[in-house]
């Protein structure tokens, strides 16, 4: 399934997420309503404790909201069981982590193929596609290297290729440049720009202002609420304040 630009891919309605810390309840996210649309490139910012990690976990379907509804490409997730949710993650979401999170025993190609092997009806020609993606992110000649034989930047390129393999609804990047030196980080961000230009939906969580500024739009959280929304070409719009 592919989306036309502008279709809603992630729809959060009045989403709340409450954690219990001992006897205290922590509202990591409160009454959060937002829509991410196909082809958008968002930076999600906020200080630690602002709820951005919680939001990312919810968007990635590895966590469920305690209130409100969340739909991916129109599919409501609260009705899904663990298995269906796993399938949805593998198919519709591409994850990129700060510490790359590759599987050390697997070579580049097999790492890229991990989201494919867990699908019941895997995409056709997955291997050819993996090779193609690896080359697209600049890993020519390293296809049978293990992660330990690659630099940080190269490992993050593998992770990016892996996030693209199933052509997901959106790519969720969590501090994707956090572990990289500025030159390598710049290369990775250029790669994101390219992906954005080719129509991919990217949600990038970061706490670095320069990284956030490179994205198309910016969403800033504070205390579990939307603090600032800055759309491309528009001045920043202050939302509710706590």
């Amino acid at each position: 399934m592919s989306d036309r630009p502008g279709d809603v891919v992630a729809d959060l309605q009045n989403v709340g997420r409450v954690y219990r810390m001992g006897s205290e309840l922590v509202h990591a996210l409160r009454d959060f309503t937002f829509q991410f649309r196909s082809g958008e490139y968002w930076a999600i910012m906020g200080s630690s404790g602002s709820g951005k990690s919680t939001l990312l976990n919810l968007l990635g379907c590895i966590d469920r909201p305690t209130s409100g509804t969340y739909s991916v490409r129109g599919q409501e997730i609260s009705g899904l069981n663990d298995n269906q949710l796993s399938v949805l993650r593998g198919r519709e979401l591409g994850f990129i982590f700060q510490s790359y999170n590759l599987i050390p025993q697997l070579n580049v190609i097999d790492n890229i193929l991990v989201p494919v092997v867990y699908q019941d009806d895997p995409i056709p020609n997955a291997k050819e596609r993996a090779v193609e993606l690896a080359e697209r992110v600049g890993l020519q000649g390293r296809l049978d290297h293990r992660p330990s034989q690659l630099s940080g930047g190269q490992q993050q390129r593998v992770a990016i290729a892996r996030s693209l393999i199933n052509d997901p609804a959106m790519i969720l990047a969590d501090e994707a440049t956090g572990n990289l030196d500025s030159k390598t980080a710049e290369e990775i961000l250029e790669l994101f720009d390219e992906l954005h230009a080719s129509g991919k939906t990217i949600l990038l969580v970061t706490h670095e202002q320069e990284v956030g500024d490179r994205a198309q739009h910016l969403l800033r959280l504070k205390d579990g609420l939307i603090h600032e929304v800055r759309l491309a070409g528009e001045p920043a719009r202050e939302e509710a304040s706590a």
Binding site: G60, I62, D82, N83, S86, V87, R89, G90, R91, F95, F97, N101, I103, V114, P115, Y118, Q119, R162, N166
Partner: peptide, 16 residues
Amino acid sequence: TREIGIRRALGARRRH
């Protein structure tokens, strides 16, 4: 544990 988390995030079901 971390590897398990990665695999789960990438679509592995419990039975996998």
